[in-house]
Amino acid sequence: MPLTSFAFPFRKNVDHRRFRSLARAFDGIQPQIEKESEQLRRARKRMTDCAAFSLEAIENGEKSECMAATLESLEQALAANRERQLVLEQQMSFLTRTRADLPSVLRFDTE
Protein backbone atom coordinates (compact mmCIF):
# COMPACT_ATOMS: atom_id res chain seq x y z
CA MET A 1 0.00 0.00 0.00
CA PRO A 2 1.60 3.31 -1.03
CA LEU A 3 2.03 6.09 1.46
CA THR A 4 -0.30 8.95 0.91
CA SER A 5 -0.43 12.30 2.57
CA PHE A 6 -2.22 12.26 5.85
CA ALA A 7 -4.88 14.85 6.46
CA PHE A 8 -4.08 16.41 9.78
CA PRO A 9 -6.61 18.70 11.40
CA PHE A 10 -3.73 21.03 12.28
CA ARG A 11 -3.93 24.48 10.87
CA LYS A 12 -1.36 27.19 11.43
CA ASN A 13 -4.07 29.56 12.59
CA VAL A 14 -4.91 27.22 15.49
CA ASP A 15 -1.67 28.26 17.18
CA HIS A 16 -2.35 31.88 16.38
CA ARG A 17 -5.85 31.72 17.89
CA ARG A 18 -4.54 29.88 20.94
CA PHE A 19 -1.81 32.40 21.64
CA ARG A 20 -3.99 35.40 20.82
CA SER A 21 -6.33 34.02 23.46
CA LEU A 22 -3.40 33.91 25.86
CA ALA A 23 -2.52 37.52 24.99
CA ARG A 24 -6.15 38.53 25.69
CA ALA A 25 -5.96 36.75 29.05
CA PHE A 26 -2.82 38.76 29.82
CA ASP A 27 -4.74 41.90 28.86
CA GLY A 28 -7.32 40.96 31.49
CA ILE A 29 -4.78 40.15 34.19
CA GLN A 30 -2.67 43.27 33.75
CA PRO A 31 -5.38 45.73 34.91
CA GLN A 32 -6.03 43.54 37.96
CA ILE A 33 -2.36 43.74 38.93
CA GLU A 34 -2.29 47.49 38.29
CA LYS A 35 -5.42 48.01 40.41
CA GLU A 36 -4.02 46.02 43.32
CA SER A 37 -0.71 47.85 43.05
CA GLU A 38 -2.48 51.22 43.19
CA GLN A 39 -4.49 50.10 46.23
CA LEU A 40 -1.24 49.08 47.93
CA ARG A 41 0.30 52.48 47.14
CA ARG A 42 -2.68 54.29 48.69
CA ALA A 43 -2.59 52.02 51.75
CA ARG A 44 1.16 52.60 52.14
CA LYS A 45 0.58 56.37 52.03
CA ARG A 46 -2.07 56.12 54.76
CA MET A 47 0.19 53.92 56.90
CA THR A 48 3.19 56.22 56.56
CA ASP A 49 1.00 59.23 57.43
CA CYS A 50 -0.29 57.41 60.49
CA ALA A 51 3.24 56.43 61.50
CA ALA A 52 4.41 60.03 61.15
CA PHE A 53 1.58 61.28 63.37
CA SER A 54 2.31 58.55 65.91
CA LEU A 55 6.00 59.43 66.00
CA GLU A 56 5.11 63.10 66.39
CA ALA A 57 2.84 62.25 69.32
CA ILE A 58 5.67 60.30 70.97
CA GLU A 59 8.07 63.20 70.39
CA ASN A 60 5.53 65.52 72.02
CA GLY A 61 5.62 63.47 75.18
CA GLU A 62 2.89 60.90 74.66
CA LYS A 63 4.53 57.67 75.79
CA SER A 64 1.85 55.08 75.82
CA GLU A 65 2.22 51.40 75.18
CA CYS A 66 -0.65 51.73 72.77
CA MET A 67 1.36 54.13 70.60
CA ALA A 68 4.34 51.77 70.57
CA ALA A 69 2.06 48.87 69.61
CA THR A 70 0.56 50.99 66.84
CA LEU A 71 3.99 51.77 65.45
CA GLU A 72 5.00 48.12 65.58
CA SER A 73 1.80 47.11 63.81
CA LEU A 74 2.36 49.77 61.15
CA GLU A 75 5.92 48.57 60.65
CA GLN A 76 4.71 45.02 60.04
CA ALA A 77 1.94 46.19 57.73
CA LEU A 78 4.36 48.33 55.73
CA ALA A 79 6.73 45.37 55.36
CA ALA A 80 3.88 43.12 54.17
CA ASN A 81 2.74 45.85 51.79
CA ARG A 82 6.24 46.15 50.31
CA GLU A 83 6.57 42.37 49.93
CA ARG A 84 3.25 42.20 48.09
CA GLN A 85 4.26 45.13 45.89
CA LEU A 86 7.44 43.25 44.93
CA VAL A 87 5.40 40.16 44.02
CA LEU A 88 3.12 42.27 41.83
CA GLU A 89 6.15 43.83 40.13
CA GLN A 90 7.45 40.34 39.37
CA GLN A 91 4.07 39.31 37.98
CA MET A 92 3.90 42.41 35.79
CA SER A 93 7.44 41.77 34.56
CA PHE A 94 6.51 38.19 33.70
CA LEU A 95 3.44 39.32 31.77
CA THR A 96 5.41 41.96 29.90
CA ARG A 97 8.25 39.59 28.96
CA THR A 98 5.93 36.76 27.95
CA ARG A 99 3.67 39.05 25.96
CA ALA A 100 6.72 40.49 24.16
CA ASP A 101 7.93 36.97 23.33
CA LEU A 102 4.66 35.76 21.83
CA PRO A 103 5.30 37.21 18.35
CA SER A 104 8.75 35.66 18.18
CA VAL A 105 7.43 32.27 19.21
CA LEU A 106 4.70 32.18 16.58
CA ARG A 107 5.73 35.01 14.28
CA PHE A 108 2.44 36.83 14.50
CA ASP A 109 1.23 40.22 15.56
CA THR A 110 -0.75 39.99 18.82
CA GLU A 111 -2.97 42.97 18.09
Rank of each mutant, 00 (worst) to 15 (best):
M1W: 10
M1P: 09
M1A: 14
P2V: 08
P2M: 07
T4G: 11
A7D: 12
A7C: 11
F8C: 11
P9I: 10
P9Y: 11
P9K: 14
R11I: 07
R11D: 11
V14N: 11
V14E: 13
H16Y: 15
R17S: 14
R17F: 15
R18K: 13
F19D: 02
F19S: 00
R20Q: 10
R20A: 04
R20G: 01
L22R: 02
A23V: 03
A23L: 03
A23I: 01
A25G: 08
F26R: 02
F26S: 01
D27K: 06
D27N: 10
I29R: 02
I29P: 02
I29S: 00
Q30H: 06
Q30T: 04
I33L: 15
K35Y: 13
E36L: 10
E36G: 05
E36H: 09
S37L: 10
S37K: 09
E38V: 04
Q39H: 10
Q39N: 15
Q39M: 12
L40I: 05
L40P: 00
R44S: 12
R46I: 06
R46L: 12
T48V: 11
T48E: 07
C50W: 05
C50N: 11
A51P: 04
A52R: 06
A52T: 04
A52M: 06
A52Y: 03
F53T: 07
S54E: 01
E56W: 02
E56G: 02
I58L: 07
I58H: 03
E59C: 03
N60S: 08
G61E: 01
G61N: 03
G61P: 02
S64F: 05
S64G: 05
S64I: 03
C66P: 06
C66M: 10
M67H: 08
A68R: 13
L71T: 03
S73R: 10
S73E: 11
L74R: 00
E75V: 05
E75C: 09
Q76S: 15
L78N: 02
A79L: 11
A79C: 04
A80N: 10
A80F: 06
N81Y: 00
L86N: 14
L86E: 14
V87T: 14
V87A: 10
L88A: 04
E89D: 15
Q90V: 05
Q90Y: 06
M92N: 06
S93H: 12
F94D: 01
F94Q: 06
L95T: 02
T96H: 04
T96F: 00
R97D: 15
R97P: 01
T98Y: 09
T98N: 07
R99S: 05
R99H: 07
A100P: 01
A100H: 08
L102E: 00
S104C: 10
S104W: 10
L106N: 03
R107Q: 13
R107H: 13
R107S: 14
R107T: 12
D109M: 06
D109S: 06
T110I: 11
E111D: 15
E111F: 11
E111Y: 12
E111N: 15
E111A: 15
